[in-house]
Write a protein that binds this DNA or RNA. Structure first.
Length: 435
DNA sequence: AACGCGTGGAC
DNA sequence: TGTCCAAGCGT
């Protein structure tokens, strides 16, 4: 796991530092070691430092400031005790953090855990990823969804390799110039890896802060987003260690202040939480209100399983759109369900020499965020057209069934193929040597 | 600036 | 079971 090159994280071990019962308001040991070179100064903590802070204290700290400090102290102390042991928190470097953050965009931790170490082992430095071909790249991203992120990460790696001398930038503004790195990701890396006093807002933070201040409205719109970022910024200004605070805020949302059943009795912010004090029963769980259901457009996919001598015919999807660049069985796609006749016409044009069997082998639904997909799998039958070897266009391949996992595919299409192979006669599955 | 982009956990 | 949504970003 040691990744000795480039950007060792100053506070990689921060959550694990000894916190022998420091009460809220005490100084935070060691994690301020994140105040390494290049850190945005921000507010210094704990001491009786001169300047405006001391003046403010002598006149009485504004309530919001005191509250912000209580919140950030309690949260950081909680995180020091309760932080989960996650792969990207071990031996963290800026590169490993960048990989983790891209993978974690709109993706749950449990999905990323198995993929992360494989990816890092294959691409230990930006230069390794910058040179990767599509197949290798997407294979290592398989199952994570939102495959465009993989290409953006590769583009970021290429930028780092070519423009930044192989080193991940330190500033949020420089990080934001990397493909795939937006406001959240830049702030996360700048703060968590480099200790910069940058705020972050993700889904967890949005929910936690709305509950903390009993802000009942959804924060999707412009005003809501502005409010959330402003609140996050005021808290990170008060925090002892911005990176620890930011990670703790997300962790709280992921493990305690969850969407449906928040564990308020276990929450370190219970005393500060304004939703917890609301009259209506179960108030925190009702914030924010659910978003109205989005319409899912139907998509019907009729895939033809063309299998011979232990090989299956695969085609590559277009470079943009759904499942961009991934492999699948030759398939007809349409907004409305088509019958056998429609598929037969389609195969005449797109799959000469083959035709679909009379009835599908299998059919199953698959939902994406915006689509209600129905996939039907048909067995491909030889047409008696006599000619020799089929012409296979450049974006199609005969793929050996024994090494199917070499081809990056969506989960949906991989499942379709597994069904097809399982249901076919054993003879067609057998590999009869080379050819 | 609204929309497209995957997959599966949780309830 | 259907529904919401998760360490968002690019266009």
């Amino acid at each position: 796991m040691a990744r000795p090159h480039e950007n060792p994280s100053p506070d990689a071990a921060a959550p694990r530092v000894r916190r022998t019962g420091h009460p809220v308001g005490g100084t935070v040991p060691a994690i301020t070691g994140a105040a390494a070179p290049g850190v945005v100064p921000g507010r210094s903590r704990g001491g009786s430092g001169g300047g405006a802070g001391a003046v403010a204290r002598s006149r009485g700290i504004p309530p919001t400031d005191a509250r912000n400090r209580r919140i950030s102290d309690a949260l950081e102390a909680w995180f020091a005790r309760e932080a989960r042991d996650l792969p990207w928190r071990r031996g963290r470097t800026a590169w490993s953090a960048l990989v983790a953050e891209l993978m974690l965009q709109q993706t749950q931790v449990s999905r990323v855990v198995p993929a992360f170490d494989r990816f890092m082992a294959r691409f230990p430095a930006p230069a390794d990823l910058a040179r990767a071909d599509d197949e290798t790249l997407l294979t290592h991203w398989a199952g994570l969804g939102y495959y465009r992120r993989a290409r953006l990460l590769r583009a970021a790696a290429a930028h780092i390799d070519a423009v930044c001398g192989g080193t991940v930038p330190r500033d949020a503004s420089a990080l934001r110039r990397l493909p795939g790195v937006g406001r959240y990701t830049a702030g996360a890396i700048a703060s968590i890896v480099f200790g910069a006093r940058e705020a972050i807002v993700d889904g967890n933070v949005t929910r936690v802060l709305a509950r903390l201040e009993a802000r009942r409205e959804r924060a999707d719109d412009d005003a809501g987003v502005r409010w959330t970022w402003a609140r996050a910024e005021s808290l990170v200004r008060a925090s002892a260690s911005p990176g620890v605070f930011n990670e703790a805020l997300m962790e709280l949302g992921a493990t305690v202040c969850t969407r449906a059943q928040p564990a308020c009795t276990a929450c370190p912010l219970r005393r500060e939480c304004r939703a917890a004090g609301l009259e209506d029963a179960g108030a925190p769980a009702s914030i924010p209100p659910p978003k109205p259901a989005a319409v899912r457009r139907p998509l019907h996919i009729d895939a033809v399983a063309v299998i011979e001598r232990g090989r299956i015919l695969l085609e590559r999807r277009p470079e943009s759109g759904l499942w961009a660049g991934l492999w699948q069985m030759p398939a007809r796609e349409s907004a409305k369900a088509g019958g056998h006749d429609a598929l037969l016409r389609w195969t005449r044009d797109h799959l000469p020499g083959w035709r679909p069997a009379a009835a599908p082998l299998h059919a199953f639904p698959h939902a994406t965020t915006h689509r209600a997909v129905v996939i039907r799998v048909w067995r491909g039958e030889r047409q008696a057209t006599g000619s020799g070897r089929d012409r296979v266009s450049s974006d199609r391949v005969w793929q050996r069934l024994t090494v199917l996992d070499e081809r990056p595919m969506s989960s949906a299409h991989r499942r379709a193929i597994e069904h097809a192979v399982a249901l076919l006669p054993a003879g067609t599955r057998r590999d009869r040597g080379s050819a």
